[in-house]
Design a protein around this nucleic acid. Structure first.
Lengths: 234, 234
DNA sequence: TTTTTGTATTCTGCATGCAAGTTGTAAAGG
DNA sequence: CCTTTACAACTTGCATGCAGAATACAAAAA
């Protein structure tokens, strides 16, 4: 099939349609989200630039971007730190996400293409596979993918983007602590119901299910957060 | 305690606790929001840096920030342009704002301090004064202030910030076209009801009123937008 | 020992220089 | 006359250099 010019394979950069060292800032974002750069840690421009093998200038631009996403805080004349994760802020973020998910539920049922629903169903079963294997990392990954795909399926780009940004901030906490087995099982069952409502295009029901699901997730996340803080203090 | 040397009053910069040329990027934001830099126009780094009397480096950082706010689009290797204002995107943004305003209404009724409500009432009457004088600019200003203050009064910082960013994008359209007298009068009456519901802390009612208000505003904005586009095409 | 003050180091914030990429133009070919 | 291609001017993206601010540290005074 896709035999692209076998002659000159010189300037072929198949992946990077993006020109700059933007890959490096994505890597930085991952470092923050995955907690390898813990909340509150200072981000020394020179050191980080060295580690990411880029210069200070694009790194500073990355700081600005990540600050807008809420992942880092900019301290005037004192550089950047990884945004602290406090329970208040996380709770506030989850509340906003709840409002957005309600809208996502309605719009997704109204606008999602059959293909999108099929894709979400596929992700759902991959997630269930991860659950069956007790593979927490894969579970989280597929879980995230489902919610993001759902946000996209609503057919509102602004909504999807906003949801995605808020989600990045919450995601950090999930990496910080595990899930109780009971909560895990319950979450999977909730996802079963969510998928069913989406497939039936029952907007009102999906909205309610997502709302409950998020409320549970909020409690779980906040519990993980306080536990994590205790752990950090110990 | 805080007796700071009354002797040397040299380095006193009372206003600017912010260190950098951030004032310049605020100015750039205003230029975009107020439409002096029309949607779609290219942002040449060198000339803009000259106009704002700053260097290219902080300007580029500003671009990144404004891109995250959705006010400019970054074209790889081709610089930045003022984000085009298309009806689809504005409609999507308004839909998200609707979801947020519903939450704002609930939370504001539950959490707003009496002082906040008093301040909103004051702004309300200033807005009515502007309406009485047919001072459209002042009306818009106070109207914005009310909605932003309401968002703050909800007591959820993330909610207020998210709302504010989405609002910046819509605000550009309002500068592009006037308001029909009937719509203007109706909007003022809607605001009367909104204030009353807030004062009574009737969350459900406020939520419904804000929802209706936003629906009307959406129609008005989209009408203004198409009109503006026609005007631009002519 | 504790507090204060002066100094040195480190870091940020910004300006500028250079290479790669893009766009506009004009000449050559069809 | 239209299309294609080579070239030139410009623009972005990035690296680096320099000045000002903030912090750390040490010495001196209480």
């Amino acid at each position: 099939m896709g035999t692209d010019s076998p002659s000159s394979l010189a300037a072929m950069t198949p992946i990077a349609r993006r020109p700059l060292h933007e890959a490096a800032i994505d890597r930085l974002r991952d470092l923050i989200v995955q907690g390898e750069l813990p909340p509150g840690s200072r981000l020394n421009e020179r050191v980080l630039a060295g580690q990411l093998a880029i210069s200070r200038t694009p790194l500073r631009e990355a700081f600005k971007l990540l600050a807008a996403e809420g992942l880092v805080d900019l301290l005037p004349n004192r550089g950047a730190i990884v945004a602290p994760v406090d329970a208040v802020r996380i709770g506030e973020t989850m509340a906003v996400m709840g409002a957005l998910e309600a809208l996502i539920g309605e719009l997704a049922c109204a606008n999602a293409s059959d293909g999108s629903i099929a894709e979400i169903r596929a992700l759902h079963f991959e997630m269930r596979a991860a659950h069956a294997r007790r593979d927490l990392a894969a579970y989280f990954r597929h879980n995230q993918a489902i919610h993001l795909k759902l946000a996209e399926a609503a057919g509102n780009a602004v909504l999807a983007l906003t949801y995605r940004q808020l989600n990045a901030n919450v995601r950090r906490v999930r990496y910080m602590a595990n899930l109780s087995p009971e909560r895990w099982d319950a979450a999977v069952h909730e996802h079963d119901a969510i998928l069913a409502a989406l497939a039936a295009r029952d907007g009102a029901r999906l909205k309610a299910l997502l709302s409950d699901h998020l409320a549970h997730k909020t409690a779980s996340v906040l519990a993980a957060l306080t536990e994590g803080l205790v752990k950090a203090a110990a």
